[in-house]
Amino acid sequence: MKQKKTKSVIPGFGLSFGVTLTILSIVVLIPLCSLVVFSARLSPSEFLHTITTTRVLKSYWISISTAFVASAINAAMGLILAWILVRYEFPGKRFVDGLIELPFALPTAVAGIALTHMTTTQGWVGKIFYDLFRIKIAYTPLGIVVALIFIGIPFVVRSVQPVLEKIDIQYEEAASLLGATRRETFWKIIFPEILPALISGFSLAFARCIGEYGSVVFISGNIPYETEIAPLMIMSKLQEYDYASATSIALVMLAIAFVILSVNAILQSMVSKRVSGIA
């Protein structure tokens, strides 16, 4: 990692690299090593046993399924939001644009208690849904989805928006002269252009939502087998000082996140090969 290929005339490599490596080691590398060391000490049978108990399996399923649904909804809404922000002029556009970032900036616990309190059967929104449709939001998987939608909004918007901005109007002109309607132009020309960004935004949101804790833990109600998410399983194992189980569950979650991000990376590189011609 330390060799330099060519001697640069710019000074300061040693200093900046040293500081970088030191801080990186303390904050990331050493803790990561200890995770690896600790994991290596887990006995395979114990590991397998922990992660295959019904309660844990169920928590993975709840985390993945709610994250998937929320991210899919966010993909659709994110596309609409990106579209109106790029293509239309309307009053309050700058405000909407700035607002998109709110879930990044608002502390997750604050969002969590607000969403929960609003959606209990006595809350502003929850009451309406319960009285009208007999649908409960808080303390159900639906509540988890609501919290995860909140968390995931910026991901899709912020990855699609710049791509949409860069699409040259000539593509649309060319398609229209060849006889395409607006709808055909959108689905055949524009959509393929933004699809990679949409997938990327979806994957990032999906991975983030699977690991999300703060905003979900209040609204989920943490009912075992029903609304208990995987991060909460880790948390409760930690509270019992059962580090081995906590680590086992965490390793599987890391693997899931890794798979999601890898699939995305592979898809992106396939697409970029196609459009940049390095195939």
Binding site: I30, P31, S34, L35, G211, I234, L238
Partner: peptide, 12 residues
């Protein structure tokens, strides 16, 4: 996941 981040420090 932030929970895993916390776990990693506990292990460390």
């Amino acid at each position: 996941s932030p929970i895993i981040a916390g776990l990693i420090y506990v292990l460390t």
